[in-house]
Measured scan of single mutants.
Amino acid sequence: MSIQHFRVALIPFFAAFCLPVFAHPETLVKVKDAEDQLGARVGYIELDLNSGKILESFRPEERFPMMSTFKVLLCGAVLSRVDAGQEQLGRRIHYSQNDLVEYSPVTEKHLTDGMTVRELCSAAITMSDNTAANLLLTTIGGPKELTAFLHNMGDHVTRLDRWEPELNEAIPNDERDTTMPAAMATTLRKLLTGELLTLASRQQLIDWMEADKVAGPLLRSALPAGWFIADKSGAGERGSRGIIAALGPDGKPSRIVVIYTTGSQATMDERNRQIAEIGASLIKHW
Results as ranks from 00 to 15, higher is better:
residue 37 Q to R: 13
residue 8 V to N: 14
residue 34 A to Q: 09
residue 48 D to C: 07
residue 37 Q to C: 11
residue 42 V to I: 13
residue 72 V to S: 06
residue 221 S to H: 12
residue 17 F to N: 08
residue 21 V to H: 05
residue 68 S to E: 00
residue 212 D to A: 04
residue 26 E to T: 14
residue 259 I to K: 00
residue 241 R to P: 00
residue 199 L to I: 15
residue 206 I to T: 13
residue 218 L to N: 03
residue 13 F to K: 04
residue 86 Q to A: 14
residue 53 K to T: 15
residue 249 P to C: 07
residue 236 G to H: 02
residue 46 E to C: 07
residue 97 Q to Y: 15
residue 37 Q to S: 13
residue 176 R to N: 08
residue 87 E to G: 05
residue 80 S to F: 13
residue 125 I to P: 00
residue 106 V to L: 14
residue 192 L to H: 04
residue 251 G to F: 08
residue 99 D to H: 09
residue 17 F to Y: 12
residue 160 L to G: 04
residue 205 L to S: 01
residue 29 V to W: 15
residue 239 G to W: 01
residue 205 L to E: 02
residue 251 G to N: 15
residue 4 Q to S: 13
residue 12 P to F: 13
residue 25 P to D: 09
residue 69 T to P: 04
residue 273 R to I: 10
residue 251 G to C: 09
residue 228 F to K: 08
residue 145 E to Y: 10
residue 85 G to K: 10
residue 121 C to M: 08
residue 229 I to C: 10
residue 220 R to S: 04
residue 250 D to K: 13
residue 83 D to Y: 02
residue 107 T to M: 05
residue 137 L to R: 01
residue 237 E to M: 15
residue 89 L to P: 07
residue 217 P to H: 10
residue 280 A to S: 14
residue 150 L to G: 05
residue 23 A to W: 03
residue 206 I to K: 12
residue 116 T to E: 11
residue 220 R to C: 03
residue 54 I to R: 09
residue 163 W to D: 08
residue 269 D to W: 10
residue 266 A to G: 13
residue 214 V to D: 02
residue 96 S to N: 14
residue 80 S to H: 14
residue 43 G to S: 06
residue 154 G to I: 02
residue 31 V to N: 02
residue 60 P to L: 10
residue 169 E to K: 13
residue 218 L to K: 02
residue 285 H to A: 09
residue 279 G to M: 04
residue 204 Q to G: 05
residue 5 H to Y: 12
residue 15 A to P: 07
residue 48 D to E: 12
residue 48 D to Y: 04
residue 1 M to K: 01
residue 184 M to T: 03
residue 237 E to A: 15
residue 38 L to A: 07
residue 131 T to G: 15
residue 147 T to A: 07
residue 156 H to M: 08
residue 88 Q to F: 13
residue 111 L to S: 08
residue 135 L to A: 06
residue 6 F to E: 06
residue 267 T to W: 05
residue 125 I to C: 09
residue 68 S to N: 00
residue 22 F to K: 09
residue 117 V to E: 03
residue 87 E to W: 05
residue 138 T to L: 10
residue 11 I to M: 11
residue 136 L to S: 02
residue 228 F to I: 08
residue 131 T to D: 01
residue 225 A to T: 14
residue 151 H to E: 12
residue 99 D to Y: 07
residue 286 W to R: 02
residue 107 T to F: 02
residue 114 G to E: 04
residue 244 I to Y: 02
residue 207 D to I: 10
residue 268 M to D: 06
residue 8 V to H: 14
residue 125 I to Y: 00
residue 176 R to I: 06
residue 157 V to K: 15
residue 4 Q to N: 14
residue 14 F to K: 02
residue 80 S to E: 11
residue 166 E to G: 12
residue 154 G to S: 08
residue 65 P to C: 04
residue 221 S to I: 11
residue 231 D to L: 04
residue 221 S to N: 12
residue 229 I to Y: 04
residue 3 I to F: 10
residue 269 D to A: 14
residue 283 I to E: 03
residue 239 G to L: 01
residue 198 T to V: 07
residue 6 F to Q: 09
residue 189 R to T: 10
residue 188 L to I: 12
residue 232 K to M: 00
residue 113 D to N: 12
residue 48 D to Q: 08
residue 20 P to C: 05
residue 128 S to A: 00
residue 230 A to V: 06
residue 36 D to C: 14
residue 86 Q to N: 11
residue 214 V to I: 07
residue 274 Q to Y: 12
residue 69 T to E: 02
residue 79 L to A: 04
residue 90 G to M: 13
residue 215 A to F: 03
